[in-house]
Simulated assay, not measured.
Amino acid sequence: MTTDADSRTYPETYYAGAYWGPRREPPEACARRAAAFLNMLAACDLLLANWNKIPKPRGKGRKTPLMPPDLPTLTEAFRRGVNREPGGPPIEHLGLTVSAYNDGARQDFVSVSMHCGSYEQHSSANVCVLSLPSKGEGAERILTAPVLAQVVRGMALAWEPDWAVAMSHAHRDLEDERGKADPWLGWVTYLSSQRGTVPPLPAPVRMEPVEDRGTLIILTPERFTVANPEHVALARRVRELLARAGLMGP
């Protein structure tokens, strides 16, 4: 197993993402979900407690604080986040996007992109992706199983996705190479109960219910890294068991 020193020095970067299919929602509904999510993030760590809207077009306009969440401000942000060709009408079926960043220093910089309300007919029309710090004290606090489980739980409760995950980019790339991209199985994974019942899984995997909506699957209590062959082997074994139970298809 990896040691704490290994975790601090290995340059593996992490993120969290939630994914769901077509769901038509107006700006007001997207704003309510975003407000709930940002409040739950704020309870996870101080780095995730202060957010400013990224202007659209990017880099232009004044900073717009989003904390504490204000529903009229968020609603207007989603309304302005509609897809459109330059000078053209809104393309409503492609949904609404709001992106935000924190006020952290360079190594503590995190961002979130929230895209909802799309009813485009493909498997993951809507998505919320949270970048995570890669090093420093913020990373040491956040890149732990309890905090990431709290982050993914917040995603599940706020966005009601089909699945969600917290994992390293290196592990995601490894999953992609094996042709297993929908859904990914990460360090922390959420599967909606609509996918089916999660079967018993081997130690040290831990499972937690998310109200009546689905299940959190936490592969290891220590930081999951592809540098550890035991971690990779465990992930593959768990994916096989979930696939046999019919939980890992598109």
Rank of each mutant, 00 (worst) to 15 (best):
D4I: 13
T9L: 12
Y10H: 09
E12Y: 03
T13C: 10
A18T: 01
A18I: 01
R24V: 00
R24C: 03
E25M: 14
P26I: 08
P26A: 12
A31N: 08
A31P: 08
R32M: 12
A34R: 09
A36P: 03
M40H: 06
A42G: 14
A42M: 09
L46M: 14
L48A: 07
L48D: 00
N50H: 15
N52Y: 14
K53E: 13
P57M: 08
G59I: 07
K60A: 11
R62P: 14
K63V: 14
P68I: 14
R80C: 11
N83F: 09
E85G: 10
P90S: 07
T97Y: 00
A100D: 06
Y101R: 15
N102D: 11
D103V: 15
R106Q: 11
Q107W: 11
D108C: 12
V110I: 13
S111R: 15
S111A: 15
V112G: 03
H115R: 09
Y119M: 08
H122Y: 06
H122Q: 03
S123P: 04
V129Y: 00
S131E: 04
S131R: 05
A145L: 01
A145T: 00
P146I: 11
V147R: 03
L148R: 02
L148M: 09
A156N: 07
A158K: 02
E160S: 07
E160R: 09
A164H: 01
A164E: 00
M167K: 07
R172H: 03
D173H: 13
D176E: 12
E177G: 15
R178V: 11
K180E: 06
D182M: 10
P183V: 02
P183I: 04
W184C: 05
W187C: 05
Y190T: 04
L191S: 01
S192K: 06
S193E: 02
Q194N: 10
G196T: 02
P202F: 09
P204V: 15
R206H: 05
E208G: 08
G214E: 00
T215I: 09
L216V: 08
L216S: 01
I217R: 05
T220H: 03
R223C: 02
V226S: 00
N228H: 09
P229F: 10
E230N: 12
A233Y: 07
R236M: 13
V238E: 00
L242H: 06
L242W: 04
R244M: 10
G246E: 05
P250E: 04
P250Y: 06
P250A: 11
